[in-house]
């Protein structure tokens, strides 16, 4: 047995309990989603037939399309906002020495600690004052703002690893500070920005309490709220639809993860602790 094969056996043996527990909810989702409606309440693991039509009926019964679109819209836009304001923020923290630096660091840590649920009453009042109730943009704004702490912190520790020499060399060649920043610095920062953006997107994709409070009409619901509304206080719960919807909502993100996971690891490794 080669050394690598031996490692493989040990590695999978040690990981197997975690793998089983991790995959279990996915199995539950998949199997329940594929059960014919009359069998949903029977806890068998093998449905009598695969009811693929559940996915079709789920799509319209759960208003899935608009909710998916809202989630993507909110995720992308809030990430864009957070990243756009965090890049200069992080750059300043990293490349300049100025009086308010300590204060800003503390400010970021404090905002990181406040959970939206703790602030939900006050947040709602802001949205009401701005006339943004039932507007997905209110959610975009809140997610964007709450993500700033994390994105700045990740970006600035990553920026610290980009050598100053390169920018300084560009100045010597006569480039202005701004153009050195755009032409030399930012291209180097792209991997860090990507990783940070993914985190920010996931936060928005997952968020529950703010969306629940701010969004009123089904047309503006994001996916977690839409799926929650299928099980919350209705007189009957169509579990096969709930599971089908959860599964479909999960797949795109799972694919992004599978594709980007190595960059995530690398980004966190450099970024997390500096």
């Amino acid at each position: 047995m080669s050394a690598k094969l031996k490692r493989t056996v040990i590695a999978w043996a040690v990981l197997s309990p975690l793998v089983v527990v991790t995959l279990f909810p996915f199995a539950v989702m998949l199997i329940t989603a594929l059960k014919p409606p009359t069998e949903v309440l029977t806890p068998n693991w093998v449905p009598s037939r695969l009811a693929w039509e559940n996915f079709v009926s789920m799509w319209s019964a759960t208003n899935f399309g608009p909710a998916l679109w809202n989630s993507i819209y909110v995720g992308v836009l809030s990430t864009a906002i957070a990243i756009a304001v965090s890049i200069p923020f992080a750059y300043a923290l990293n490349r300049f020495d100025f009086g308010a630096k300590g204060f800003l660091r503390q400010f970021l840590l404090v905002t990181q600690m406040l959970s939206p649920i703790v602030l939900v009453i006050g947040l709602f009042r802001i949205a009401a004052a701005l006339g943004l109730i039932d507007n997905v943009n209110s959610v975009v704004l809140v997610y964007g703002a709450f993500n700033i702490a994390f994105t700045v912190w990740m970006l600035q520790s990553y920026f610290a690893t980009i050598p100053r020499d390169l920018e300084e060399a560009a100045w010597l060649e006569g480039a202005s500070h701004a153009s050195a920043l755009v032409r030399v610095f930012l291209p180097l920062a792209v991997p860090a920005i990507t990783v940070t953006a993914i985190f920010s997107f996931i936060q928005a994709w997952n968020e529950f309490v703010i969306a629940l409070t701010m969004l009123r009409r089904q047309e503006s619901y994001t996916l977690p709220i839409q799926i929650f509304s299928l099980v919350a206080g209705r007189y009957t719960v169509e579990w096969h639809h709930v599971m089908a919807a959860s599964l479909v909502a999960t797949i795109p993100v799972a694919i992004i993860f599978a594709w980007l996971q190595r960059y995530l690891v690398r980004g966190l490794g450099v970024g997390a602790v500096k």
Binding site: F124, R125, A127
Partner: peptide, 20 residues
């Protein structure tokens, strides 16, 4: 505005508290 039953009272509370 369709609201799930479980959160109806919460929504009404925040709505009224925010004057919305």
């Amino acid at each position: 505005e369709v609201v799930p039953w479980d959160v109806l009272l919460q929504k009404l509370t925040t709505d009224i508290s925010g004057g919305a």
